[in-house]
Amino acid sequence: MKAVAELYLSDVRERMAEVRRLGDRALSQLDDAGWHRSLAGGGNSAAVLVQHLSGNMHARWGGLRGGYRPDYEGEPASRDRDSEFEESGLAPAELQARWDDGWAVFLDTLDHLTPEDLTRTLTIRGEPHTVLSAVQRQVAHYSGHVYQLVLIVKTLRGDQWQTLSIPRGQSVAYITQMHAAQAAALPDSDEQR
């Protein structure tokens, strides 16, 4: 079972680093004003989502950066969640710093969790969770908000949007290129004899 837990931790680290890079690439396409635009009245801007993600990452994982601690509460009384959803007017550089710092907290915590930690307990708003379920909860939460960021930025950029995946109409060319790269990486069959 330990091997499965190690595989899970390795995979979740890799997947969440990919989610973060996806957000990085979307946010890099915003101009200064774009950070604070929402798509509809009452909607979240990229700035608000960044503030919320950073606040959540600090609350949930800040006390576990060096490893698991028994009786950890992932929603400290010092957190002001509601303020995370208020437009702060922060400059893009400040928002980028919050984004980077929040992700550093979460990814550093993942780096310090052990397979044995996954079955241990922590609480969030007083509700007990295994570390595994707390991580899974946040994987879904963070991924959802990053995809919201992508939608916001893509909509705001319109024709200037630079795709974050395979461009439309390029799937066959992409797969062909991948297969060619894989074939080139294989050892020559004559050399194996």
Rank of each mutant, 00 (worst) to 15 (best):
G63W: 00
L64T: 03
R65Y: 00
G66A: 14
R69F: 08
P70C: 07
D71E: 14
G74V: 08
G74N: 02
E75M: 12
E75L: 12
P76D: 10
P76R: 04
R79V: 15
D80C: 07
D80M: 04
D80R: 10
R81G: 13
D82M: 10
D82T: 09
D82F: 07
D82V: 11
S83E: 06
E86R: 13
E87I: 02
S88F: 02
L90K: 09
P92L: 12
E94R: 14
Q96D: 05
Q96R: 15
A97E: 14
W99N: 07
D101F: 06
G102W: 04
G102Y: 04
G102I: 07
A104F: 03
V105F: 05
F106H: 09
L107W: 05
L107F: 06
L107M: 09
D108G: 15
T109C: 11
L110W: 03
D111P: 01
H112T: 07
T114H: 03
T114Q: 11
P115E: 05
P115W: 07
T119W: 06
R120E: 10
R120I: 11
T121R: 11
L122V: 15
I124A: 11
G126N: 07
E127T: 14
E127G: 04
L132P: 00
S133R: 13
S133V: 09
S133G: 03
A134Y: 04
Q136A: 13
Q136Y: 04
Q136C: 14
Q138K: 01
V139S: 00
V139F: 11
A140V: 12
H141E: 12
Y142K: 01
V146K: 00
Q148R: 04
L149V: 15
L149M: 14
V150T: 03
V150I: 06
V150P: 00
I152W: 01
V153P: 00
V153A: 03
L156T: 04
G158M: 14
G158I: 14
Q160E: 15
Q160F: 04
W161V: 09
Q162V: 12
Q162M: 08
Q162W: 02
T163F: 03
L164N: 09
S165N: 13
S165R: 12
